[in-house]
């Protein structure tokens, strides 16, 4: 599904990604771990298409198509979803209004009529239930005044609504207490199928107890320095990143 080859990227002349190679197939969960500043969030942003980063070398293919030529929204509409580490507050636009606009703009591009309001509401309620979100939530402004946990839940709610092929969860566990973590992880797990894939970016092994990865990669200095199965995460938890980075 996703093929990254020798990806190099920089921001304002500062090299951050120094040759990433990664393959993700449908049905798989990949965890990307690494110390602060290793390039984890940059990798997520570059896949999503954030313009601040300049890709200087390498390629990203998504379903055999060159991704680097596509705009942010085109990547989204091809089925890539980024759950933000720091979701943006948008005062003045409610969750339901935002979701309605996103869904219907996508349908417009697919040549479909807008989704009838009652169907849309039904769909939203169904996904809210999945994430234990109460009903007052839809009329609140996007992320405005949300707690850390509510913001992350709102990310996964949008993920559920947009039903992407590839989900990238950037530090979804940060700012979550253990109960919220379980709810969010449970939501992600229920949305998994053999046709979609997930990349989980995290500092800690904790989240991986709930979203169990098939592969774990360690990112350091903009390169994947070690890959393995889920047991690699436990090893990192026990020995720290020094174990790998000092080699």
């Amino acid at each position: 599904m996703l093929n990254i080859k020798n990806l190099k990227a920089q921001i304002e002349e500062i090299k951050i990604l120094n040759g990433i190679n990664l393959s993700v197939n449908a049905g798989e969960v990949h965890a990307i771990m690494g110390p602060n500043g290793s390039g984890k969030s940059t990798l997520a942003s570059v896949i999503a298409g954030k313009e601040d980063y300049e890709v200087t070398d390498g390629e990203i293919e998504f379903e055999s198509e060159d991704l680097l030529d596509l705009a942010v929204e085109e990547r989204s509409n091809k089925g890539i979803f980024l759950s933000f580490q720091y979701p943006v507050e948008i005062p003045g636009i409610s969750v339901s209004n935002f979701m309605k606009t996103c869904i219907n703009e996508r349908r417009k591009q697919q040549g479909l009529d807008p989704m009838p309001a009652t169907d849309l509401l039904k769909l939203m309620r169904e996904k809210m239930e999945l994430l234990n979100i109460n009903s007052g939530y839809l009329s609140r402004n996007m992320n405005e005044g949300f707690s850390g946990g509510e913001k992350k839940r709102n990310e996964i709610f949008q993920l559920a609504m947009l039903n992407p092929k590839l989900s990238i969860l950037d530090e979804t566990d940060s700012g979550l207490d253990i109960d919220a973590l379980k709810i969010v992880a449970n939501g992600v797990n229920k949305l998994r199928t053999e046709n979609n894939a997930t990349i989980v970016i995290t500092h800690y092994q904790r989240l991986l107890d709930y979203i169990v990865p098939d592969f774990v990669h360690v990112l350091y200095n903009g390169k994947i320095v070690k890959s393995g199965g889920k047991e690699l995460a436990y090893e990192l938890e026990e020995k720290g990143y020094d174990w790998i980075t000092k080699k």
Partner: peptide, 22 residues
Amino acid sequence: ALFYMKSRGLAEKEAKALLTYA
């Protein structure tokens, strides 16, 4: 905010308009 909205599939023009409306 524009990047956030575009990452949800809104085109540049629509994302700007929605943010302006907000």
